[in-house]
C-alpha cells in the first residue's frame, strides 16, 4: 500500500509501524499498516469515523495488541507506559462543577501516574507555569477547566501531554468540535511545537484541510487499510480509489481538497462502510 518515498533510515525514525494487523471481535480492523514518522515531523492520520484511527493509536500506545507486524517507538519495541509518547485522547469531558483548574490538569501530566505525595512543590509549580506559557494558556491557568472554551481546553490537554517531555505527541481528533478560529490556532500551536522542540506530532482528523498548511506527511486510513506519503503523493485519485476499492475523484477547489465518490461502480457500494461522513456517493468533506 505504500507509495514509494525516499527511504529514511529506520534507525532514525521516532515511530516505525511495520505491517500490523488488528482483529477485534472477529473482524479485521487494521490490515497490514506500515509507515514511519521522523523526529520533528508533522504527520496527519486522515480517515473517517470508524476507519480505525483510534485503534491504530491504541496499538502505538501499547494498549492493543496486533496480530501481526511490529511497532518500534524511538527504535525500541513497544512497552506499556512509554515515556517517549505524549497522548491527547479524543473525548475528555470536563464537568463545569468539578473543582479543577487548568493548572491542576497540567500538573497531573507531570506526575499523575505516580503514587505518593509530590515533594518539590516549587519546582513543580515552575514547570507547570512554563508549560502553560509554552501553549499560551497562562491567562486562564487558574480558571475552572470545565468553564473554558473547547479551544482553551485543547491547549490545556496539549500542555498536559507535553509536560512529561515526550518525543512523539499523539492527538486523537483534537480539532473535532472546535470552531474554525480555534482550529487554526491549535494547528499553528502544534506546528510550532513540532518545529521548535523537534517533537514529532501525529494527529488524527477526518478533514485534511485544516492540516494542509503545516503537514509534512500523512497516513490515510480507509476500511482498515492505509496509504502514506506526502499530501501530493497520497491524495490522488488512483491511490484513494485503490484504498476505497471504488472510483474516487480528487478535486482541488480554492486551495481546499475535496474527495468525491465516483458515480460508476455498483450502487451503494462500500462507501457507506468506509466513510461514515458520506452516505452513498457524493462529496466527502475530506
Amino acid at each position: 500500500m505504500n507509495v514509494p518515498v525516499p527511504d529514511p533510515s529506520a534507525d532514525d525514525a521516532i515511530l516505525n509501524v511495520d505491517g500490523i494487523s488488528v482483529w477485534l471481535a472477529g473482524r479485521e480492523v487494521l490490515h497490514d499498516v506500515r509507515f514511519r514518522i521522523m523526529p520533528g515531523e508533522f504527520t496527519g492520520l486522515i480517515g473517517s469515523n470508524g476507519a480505525g484511527k483510534t485503534t491504530l493509536f491504541r496499538v502505538i500506545l501499547g494498549l492493543q495488541t496486533s496480530s501481526t507486524g511490529s511497532v518500534l517507538v524511538g527504535g525500541r519495541p513497544l512497552t506499556h507506559r512509554n515515556p517517549i509518547i505524549g497522548y491527547v485522547p479524543q473525548k475528555v469531558f470536563f464537568d463545569p462543577d468539578m473543582p479543577l483548574r487548568a493548572r491542576d490538569v497540567v500538573g497531573l501530566g507531570l506526575d499523575g501516574h505516580r503514587l505518593g505525595i509530590p515533594l518539590d512543590w516549587g519546582r513543580r509549580r515552575q514547570a507547570v507555569d512554563a508549560m502553560l506559557d509554552a501553549v499560551d494558556a497562562r491567562r486562564f491557568a487558574d480558571a475552572r477547566v470545565g468553564n473554558l472554551s473547547g479551544g482553551e481546553q485543547q491547549r490545556v490537554l496539549i500542555a498536559h501531554a507535553l509536560i512529561s517531555r515526550p518525543r512523539l505527541l499523539l492527538l486523537d481528533e483534537p480539532l473535532a468540535n472546535l470552531d474554525i478560529g480555534a482550529e487554526g490556532e491549535v494547528v499553528a500551536l502544534l506546528a510550532r511545537i513540532a518545529r521548535e522542540q523537534r517533537i514529532a506530532v501525529f494527529i488524527s482528523a477526518h478533514d485534511v484541510n485544516p492540516l494542509l498548511p503545516v503537514m509534512d506527511r500523512l497516513v490515510y486510513v480507509a476500511a482498515g487499510k492505509t496509504a502514506s506519503g506526502t499530501t501530493a503523493e497520497v491524495i490522488r485519485a488512483e491511490v484513494l480509489s485503490a484504498l476505497y476499492g471504488q472510483h474516487v475523484d480528487v478535486l482541488r477547489v480554492h486551495g481546499r481538497i475535496l474527495v468525491v465518490a465516483g458515480a460508476e461502480g455498483p450502487p451503494g457500494v462500500t462507501f457507506e462502510e468506509t466513510d461514515g461522513v458520506a452516505a452513498g456517493p457524493g462529496v466527502v468533506s475530506l
Binding site: 494498549l63 507506559r81 497522548y87 479524543q90 475528555v92 497531573l108 499523575g112
Partner: peptide
Amino acid sequence: IAPEVAEARGV
C-alpha cells in the same frame, strides 16, 4: 479526569 490518558501512562 482522563481514564484513557491514565491507561496510556500505565496506571
